[in-house]
Design a protein around this nucleic acid. Structure first.
Lengths: 207, 207, 207, 207
DNA sequence: CATGAATGAGTCTTCATTCAT
DNA sequence: GATGAATGAAGACTCATTCAT
């Protein structure tokens, strides 16, 4: 919960160019350590080593370890949420079939963009503080989905909120399964096809 | 894979009556600590304290902390997998609409049976050892779903495996979202309705 | 030091036949665990397991773990000391050359009889209590060697005690090296030859 | 063999001046605890206490307890090996009698230099990791002894390796006995005399 | 500002020993 | 006598965090 409160967010808004670069380096290092070593072994020392900075430097930008991980997760969730918002914005006024397809594809693409990182970040989202960040991102996405659904040219939804929740969850579930297993391009294509079917079909099932 | 082999399974097949009781006490204590304190604070000391036994006793039954958590997760997954298998066995020969409803309901019920525990166990599923256990349980469920889908009276599926995977994921996703948020009976009823729509609709969308 | 005091010696002088057998089984089990697992992992549980008895039973015969290990070491030292005493008794009145050869051979044979065990027991002899037991056995052997040296038909020794000490040490040193390395029969034969040369030569070097 | 490779060697090549001092302090503390408390009670806590640092600091320099003890043993063995190499280098071309005396004296002196430490380190030499280090040091010393023996002005040796092995063992044995017992300067002088006799006599016994 | 050595609380894990059955 | 479940003190090791340089 407190992962998102003031003391856990970046300590300084980077004013100088060097700061931005360092922050970026730390971000990448964290992701890499997370992917290579897992969340348990992703500690400040290892991140600092991989980033090529000292632990002290990390503490210049983040007040503690949780903030560091929260920051990384937040950034990832941000990109996914943006992708969904983008898809929703573009799809305004379209048919529900098009909306379902657009949302499914956008979500899948956003997660696959950095598949390994996405997978590694599942472990963070489940730890105490992550849940809150995920909830915030979900709220954003739900709002976008609700908005686009309400603009559908071919359907009306009685309980848009519930429909949006189920739609997003129904897309997120298989994607999670996909990422947690070994998969190849063929598997991805198959899943994508079914995912689009699933989403479009669901939305079109309303009278 | 090897996380679920010998070293992570219970160390001792309880011979005396006392052992069985102790094992059960440890199991319950672990769940409780997991729910109340979260996975990070669910350590051997706390479990032992809550169980009213000494740490040593835990190690009589589990080779290490991971095995303890894995054991709890395994038992949970077992119950969910059984619920799905049960639903699939019962639904043989039915229509795809009935199947989708049955699977969605079975899954939701199994997870809601011990909702708090289910929620807490998501965190373990993401830790390294958990992923393997989840994969095994998923495999079991996929087999059952594939089997029942192939027996549908009203549809044929070209790629049953993919359909089963997407179906299960599509059900699991919203359920996870549900459990990770505050919810009441009304919300559950709404979600359940949509979940049934989603599953049935998806299956019926095939020619 | 206190390994040899009263409370650390076998708790009961076995009166019944069964007791003797159990004691023997425990002895063998301890040696085997010591050889296979090393001194650090040679604990009461493992010894009991291998012996096919319960831990409790071990405590019927030994007051604690140290006494158990001390007992095993003692028995080994006893056999070596006896071998030396035997050789010395037989060699009374012989020439120093014969004596040196006899002692070197007796020592080597005694250690090689159960080479693996001998090697494993070095680790115990070095732990606190073992040193005292070794000292006692050494004392016995020194007495025997002093006695036989004094009976030599061809030499007189001014400081028999020192000569005996050096002689025994000079034999024990290479034997220890031999046991701590990989060796084959050829190596043993070579060492034996040189050991005899060394011992005989040393004794004959006195005017 | 692999006990002396990376994982058991110092973790950090000290970069700052403070590090060097700390490493030295830890080394001395380990020796002192070893001497005063014995190897069994020479644990990280006690070493840290005596060194006046925290346990964490020890782990900055050594990956684990064994490496710590191995490091201390290694340094000791290094000094002994150097002493022997020095003696051998100096003795090139001398007579076998001189060589024997030089080696015996060098070994005895090296061990007596820090007698208490030498004695304490015998216990480490027998623990698993120690054996490998001892083997390496022995190899070094054997090479030096072989080399010098081959240069003897008065003798030729058929199997120099075996002779060297027996010679070193024959010197090491009595020295070990000496250190493991109470002794005074007189005893040392006596032993030294006999040790020289032993070594010289042995080498001169070859045709 | 950056560094990285030092800290020490917190965990996991082992194992000698006891004692109710 | 024998058993083996339970105990809990002790020890190894980690890692977030601080602060002197």
């Amino acid at each position: 919960m407190n992962l998102i409160s003031a003391p856990d967010l970046p300590r300084k808004r980077p004013a100088q160019a060097r700061s931005v670069a360092t922050l970026e380096i730390i971000y990448e290092a964290t992701l890499q350590v997370l992917v290579k070593e897992g969340p348990a072994r992703c500690n400040t020392t290892r991140v600092a080593e991989r980033a090529g900075v000292s632990v002290g430097t990390i503490y210049q930008y983040y007040p503690n370890r949780r903030a560091l991980l929260a920051g990384v997760l937040e950034r990832h969730l941000e990109s996914v949420a943006q992708a969904i918002e983008q898809a929703c914005a573009t799809g305004h006024g379209a048919t529900t079939g098009e909306m379902g397809a657009a949302i499914a594809n956008a979500f899948l693409d956003a997660k696959l963009l950095r598949a390994e990182a996405s997978r590694a970040l599942y472990t963070i989202s489940e730890s105490h503080g992550g849940v809150a960040l995920v909830a915030i991102a979900r709220e954003r996405m739900l709002r976008a989905v609700c908005s686009v659904l309400s603009s559908a040219s071919d359907r009306r939804f009685a309980k848009v909120e519930t429909v949006a929740l189920v739609l997003l969850g129904a897309v997120a579930g298989p994607v999670r399964e996909l990422l947690e297993q070994d998969y190849d391009d063929v598997a991805v294509a198959s899943i994508r096809e079914q995912l689009v079917n699933l989403a479009s079909g669901y939305l079109q099932s309303f009278a």
